[in-house]
Structures are given as C-alpha cells and as structure tokens.
Nucleic acid binder design. Structure first.
Lengths: 191, 191
DNA sequence: ATAAATACTTACTATTTAGTAAGTATTCCC
DNA sequence: GGGAATACTTACTAAATAGTAAGTATTTAT
C-alpha cells in the first residue's frame, strides 16, 4: 500500500464532478466517492475538509478550464463556427453520458449552497456567457452568423437551449436534444 | 388538538412541491415538512409511506392540473397569445419566488429516482410539450404567430428557453430572464 | 352508544452522513 | 539516517434521515 498517491486528489475531483452531473450535488456523499476510489472516507476529508470545499474546488477548476479555453481560442484564431461546434459538442457528450451540465445541476441546488460557493458559480456562468457571446459576435463579423437579436440576447437563447436541452434529453430521449442542437445552428445562420 | 385535519395531506403536498422547486428533491427531508406543518415526522409517513410516494403524488397533481388546463383552454377558446402569456406567467412567478420549474428541478435528480416516478415525469413532460405545441399551432393558424421552425422544434426551443431561463435567473438575476422572455415572444412573431 | 375508521403522537431503531482524533507508512530533504 | 511532511488508515462520535410499531384522541356511521 503506497502512502503517497499523487493523483487521489484529482480523482476525487473527477468523481465528484461526475456525480454532480449525473446524480446532483445533494444526492451523493463522501462515502460514494470513497467506495469508487477504494479508499476510506477520512481520506476524502483529508483532501477536502467538507463537501462544500470539494464543490468549491470543482467550480474553480471549471473556471480555470474556461479561462484557458478562452485564451486558446483567441490565440488559435479558430473560426466562430468551429468554436461554437466544439462548445456544443461538450453538451452532446453530456447527453451521451446521461449527464447534465454542471451549471444546470448546481442551479437546482443553488439555494442550499453557502454564499462563497454561490459567488463562484456566478463567476463561472459569467465566464461561459462571455465566451459564447464573443464567439457569436466574432461569427457575425465574419458573416458566419446572421442572427438578428443583440448578441447578449442570442447568447442567452443559445445557452438556455443547450442547458435545458440536455436536461430534457434525460427525460424524453436524445432525439429532442438533437432537434434543439440543429435548430440552434440554423437560427444563428438565418436569424 | 384536533385528531382529524382534512387538509394536512394537501399541505404536505404543497410544502413538498415548494421545497422541490426551491431546494431540490434530494435537499429536503420529512423533518423539514414536519417542522413547517407543526406536526411530528410520523404524521408525514402516515400520509405518504416514503418520500418517493410523496414525489409521485406531487407529479400526479401536476399531471392533473395540466390536463385540466388543457381542457379549459380548449373549452374557453382563448387566443393562442393569451394562453402562451398565461403559460409564461407561471415561469415569471417562479423567478419571483426564487424557484425553478419542477421539471427542471427533477431533471437534475432524475437518475436517483425509481423507474415508476421516472415514467410519471415523462408523462408530465409529454403533456406540457403537447400543450405548448398545440398553442403554437393554433396561434400560427390564426396568424398570431409566424415562426418558421416546425411546431415541435419551436416548442422545444420555447420550453428550454423558459426552463433554463428560470434557472439562470437564480444565478445571474431576473434581468436575464426578462430578456429571454421578451425574445421568446419576439421570435414567435417574426421567426 | 359504540365500533370502526381516521389522523395523528410517542417512542423507538437502523442506517447514513459528516466529521474528528490519533496513529501509521512512505517519501522527501538536509 | 533522522526529522518533517505527506497521504493515508483505524476508530470513533454526533447528528440527521428514514422508517416502524403501538398507542391515543376524535370523528363517522350504524
């Protein structure tokens, strides 16, 4: 038995994230993570004092991830169409994994979270909305997109279609999600 | 102390429904309901064997409520615009109560529910989608609406905008919801 | 007037959850 | 090679959660 396993902490975050997206934040306990990781409950507490600290770290990692993505996209100079496709692809993967997006999952439990975590969620949502809006604006400039709503509004429409689309897919099946996905793209090209 | 209070059962359903919409299904216990109702825990178990039975009843009542609404609307011959406005009004009220729609809330916890409840949720979602689609079709026929997507697709877009709109409003504030609400109506009138 | 049904309460149990304290094994560093 | 730090484990506790069994008060129906 190795006394030092450098990726246990990362694994906890990975499993915790998966559990939030598949079962919801208030539906899992440290015991669930411990069992999957084949460690004792206290090992999770060693890395994260409590569940809220774990959630906080998970959101931090999403913020980091989206900040990085933002930078990469700007540097790479990818077309708006490609960026949007990659973004939507994330949601399609969620549907295939019978999961929903972390923001939608947390939104359901929002009123049960401490203020510090709520603030971080706000930050994350702001970041994602900014990223999508910038992509829509860029695409409009190049003529890739032709929507008629102001960018912020179009962003809200796309985001809500996607977020609730994956939720709906869980209940009524993937076909409804696919219908929504195609409509989003259509709307951006002839709105 | 009256040994028979005919509306305790209704009150349990009312409080349970409110808790699901504000805190999420997996975030409340019978103790929360018991405290609010000023009865003992076992009183809740008397009316509903377990939490799943309560959830089942709550969904049944939504199904009944929407079935009734459907009939009333057909009988009253209200204009599609009015029906849609009333429907949207339900979501606006949710935002004001810092709550989300029951379907969105349950979607987050969907994988933790027993198969029998999942089936009922499917039924409810089917009913709501049908109601909205019929309204959109009716409105198109009268010229009130002019959207270009097929009715089913437009229904999915409207529903996801609303469902995720109330979720987003919790995090970023009511203004984003209002923006979405106005855009939905605009899209139906010039899509 | 009383038997049965209803709507609870008290009192309890078993399990899960969240968390802590103290100890142990390994590895890093000087 | 001897701390110090790291990454755990064992072993516990306190509280919450879910649920049941048995009893009680009131109401309804006969």
């Amino acid at each position: 038995m190795t006394a030092r396993n450098t990726d246990t902490k990362e694994e906890i975050v990975r499993i915790g994230t998966a559990l939030i997206k598949s079962h919801g934040y208030n539906a899992f306990s440290y015991a669930d993570i411990a069992e999957k990781l084949q460690v004792r409950n206290a090992a999770i507490h060693y890395h994260f004092r409590g569940k809220e600290d774990l959630l906080s770290e998970i959101i931090d990692q999403y913020i980091e991830s989206y900040t990085l993505l933002d930078k990469q996209l700007k540097a790479a100079g990818a077309s708006a169409t490609v960026v949007l496709e990659k973004f939507i692809e994330r949601y399609s993967c969620l549907v295939d994994a019978n999961s929903i997006c972390i923001i939608g999952s947390i939104a359901s439990d929002f009123n049960t979270l401490p203020e510090s975590v709520k603030e971080k969620v706000k930050q994350l949502v702001g970041l994602v909305l900014k990223l999508v809006e910038q992509t829509l604006v860029a695409g409009k400039k190049t003529g890739e997109f032709t929507f008629s709503e102001v960018p912020k509004t179009q962003t809200l429409l796309v985001m809500t279609n996607l977020a609730a689309g994956v939720q709906l897919a869980r209940i009524t099946g993937k076909r409804d999600y696919d219908t929504i996905k195609k409509a989003i793209i259509r709307q951006l090209k002839k709105g």
